[in-house]
């Protein structure tokens, strides 16, 4: 949450300052404007778009990407990248599926323990945290470039997901009341006052993440590292510690996304989450996060995730082919970065 001063402190008000100030404001709000424009367009073109049912569907889709994108924003703000999140989604789904379907065999008692839903959530989060910890350790202690370290764990986690079931799907993850492990689908399809649980969870996670980024020493240090890692170190910031935390947060966010997907589908598939990391990066970048590090906000990222979600759902409803959807998504991302550069240039003046 960088507070950027829009006015140069020394220069007096130039005659064109007013109009350029307005342009600057428009550029700053670009993602929100894009979201409004895209939504309005679909409301006109696709009559059912604004219906309550559809909004629920969209927000559920957005929630998945938003979890990944929140963690990704932290990582990118420190100047890193996390390519492993999509694979964590798949791995976490498979571990949950395994625990519900087969439980944990207890070696000496000839029995099987079936963890309940809360314990399953715990295992899932631990998985994400562990992968994140490995990422962070590789990057800090062994000086592996973030791109490479997380590319490696991306393959490893995906391979592990496939190994768990030998590539098979775990279907029908409803659990059994007599084992005490039923209730897993509620996470993905439950609602509170008509609002999907996943969406509420997304809002809670986003609020906490925004608070940490904006109001805590940890958040401040994340931005400091992204701005100038060496200066941050010389200022007494524990750079390595903060970086490890950031990758752990990203892994844990991916684990939540993985839980929700397999709960929504009531099944877990080892290929689930493939290329989700790219959607998460796209959402962060659309929301104004700079891949060079040091800039980006959780709020922006959430709006970015909504732009992507609304765009793909709207295009589906309009019957635009999947292939064209990809082209359009690519164009939107490039346009967003070009506008970002324009804003930076204007800021500098």
């Amino acid at each position: 949450m960088t507070t950027s001063a829009s006015a140069a402190p020394t220069s007096g008000p130039a005659p064109e300052a007013k109009s350029s100030g307005a342009v600057l404001l428009l550029l700053k709000m670009r993602t929100l404007i894009a979201l409004i424009v895209v939504t309005a367009y679909f409301c006109i073109m696709a009559p059912n778009f604004i219906s309550l049912g559809n909004l629920v569907i969209i927000s559920k889709h957005v929630a998945i990407n938003a979890f990944l994108a929140i963690g990704m924003t932290y990582v990118i703000v420190t100047g890193g990248i996390d390519l492993s999140v999509g694979s964590i989604v798949g791995l976490v789904g498979m571990i949950s599926g395994l625990l519900i379907t087969h439980g944990i065999p207890l070696p000496f008692m000839d029995a099987t323990a079936y963890p309940n839903v809360f314990e399953i959530i715990g295992f899932a989060l631990l998985t994400g945290i562990l992968v994140g910890f490995i990422n962070g350790t590789l990057i800090t202690r062994f000086s592996v470039a973030p791109f490479i370290a997380t590319l490696g764990t991306m393959y490893i986690a995906r391979g592990a997901a496939l190994l768990i079931s030998n590539g098979e799907t775990f279907p029908n993850l409803v659990g059994r009341a007599e084992f005490g492990n039923d209730g897993f689908p509620i996470l993905g399809s439950g609602t509170v006052l008509g609002i999907p649980l996943a969406v509420i969870l997304m809002i809670v996670v986003a609020l906490v993440a925004a608070y940490v980024a904006g109001r805590t020493p940890l958040g401040r240090q994340i931005y400091a590292i992204g701005g100038n890692e060496r200066a941050a170190m010389l200022s007494g910031v524990y750079v390595n510690r903060v970086k490890v935390i950031v990758y752990i947060v990203s892994g844990a966010c991916a684990a939540i996304a993985g839980l929700i997907i397999s709960s929504q589908l009531v099944a877990s598939h080892p290929a689930s989450g493939t290329s989700f990391e790219m959607n998460a990066i796209a959402a962060a970048v659309l929301g104004g996060t700079s891949l060079a590090g040091g800039r980006g906000t959780i709020g922006g990222t959430i709006i970015g995730a909504f732009v992507i979600g609304v765009l793909s759902d709207g295009l589906v409803m309009m019957g635009v082919s999947e292939f064209w959807q990809m082209v359009i998504k690519g164009l939107v991302i490039i346009a967003a970065v070009i506008l970002d550069q324009m804003q930076r240039k204007m800021n500098r003046r």
């Binding site: 240090q221 931005y223 400091a224 200066a231």
Partner: peptide
């Protein structure tokens, strides 16, 4: 190179 976090405000640079 070593003293400033160029992305942060004066306040945040002083208090870091």
């Amino acid at each position: 190179r070593d003293g400033l976090m160029q992305n942060l405000s004066v306040l945040k640079n002083i208090s870091i």
